[in-house]
Write a protein that binds this DNA or RNA. Structure first.
Lengths: 154, 154
DNA sequence: TGTATAGGTTCGCATTCTAAATCCAGATCA
DNA sequence: TGATCTGGATTTAGAATGCGAACCTATACA
């Protein structure tokens, strides 16, 4: 069990760390649940609302924040015979959160699932065996967690 | 750009999904910042407090929650000439969040960093080239994002 | 003309967060 | 023996954010 050595401070203070910025942006319950739904293809206000069960005011505010931050793109769609409505689609920025949310799903399956089989898992197209979130080097080969070393800039 | 098809609902409702459980547990600003600090080796109440600048009441509550959930282990330490104090050390459960937080750090570097070089990066021990969060198959080979397929149980 | 529908906003109340002061137990020191 | 210090945590009161329900708006259709 690779014990992390005692430190009085993080090597990078929270206010210059991009992790802290990311946490400020998406580190709350409703925002994360919105992104989860978006990654499964939910795009419309009322669909988000009925899936999450969150107050419409909160949903409206969070969607606006995500659009402003560039994670979601607001575009109009028009069902025939209906008026045009906005639709919230993940941008490249938002899509690239997928490994993180899948990783967190699998972490939840492993540690919070109470021994139940996970309700959803992920495979490589055309294969039946599961995939998992991990670290890879430039050549795409896995790097084990105990092989990871932080490097400070400068 | 692999556009995700429209869905009215997620395939797994949030209340049976372990991602939602994970979000309930660690999906808030202070908890995530605590875990970040813990992964860098911070262990003591006042060290967390001075690093995060969060209200002591919040810190106290969050630490308790994380201990109850088994992400942190509370053990005593004793500096010579001082009385014994509790220390909050990551358990295996907590440690296994590392790939997720590093992944989120790199996501922030890529999309929120405003063109600056990231203040911290990660390499494989004994190597100089950077590693990144990704998906791998059972043999540890990278699976590209567009090759990922969700599979429902049952 | 009226009604239905999707996407919001407005409103009043409840919960949670925040900051500062306080408490507490045990070493150390006079 | 008592006074003091110190790290860990609780109390309290005000601010921010959350919540749910009702309401508003623009188009399509009957």
């Amino acid at each position: 069990m690779s014990q992390i050595p005692l430190a009085r401070r993080s090597p990078v203070p929270p206010d210059t760390c991009n992790l802290a910025k990311a946490i400020d942006l998406i580190g709350d319950r409703w925002t994360l649940l919105i992104l989860r739904a978006a990654l499964y293809g939910v795009r419309r206000f009322d669909d988000f609302q009925s899936e999450l069960g969150c107050p419409r005011t909160v949903l409206s505010g969070r969607l606006k924040k995500l659009v402003d931050a560039g994670l979601l793109t607001k575009k109009a769609y028009k069902a025939p015979g209906k008026r045009a409505r906005p639709e919230y689609v993940l941008s490249a920025t938002g899509l690239s959160l997928r490994p993180i949310l899948i990783g967190l799903t699998q972490w939840g399956d492993a540690w919070l699932g109470q021994g139940e089989a996970p309700p959803i898992s992920f495979t490589k197209a055309g294969s039946k065996s599961a995939i998992r979130a991990a670290f890879v080097d430039v050549e795409g080969r896995e790097v084990r967690p105990d092989q990871i070393r932080p490097v400070l800039r400068g």
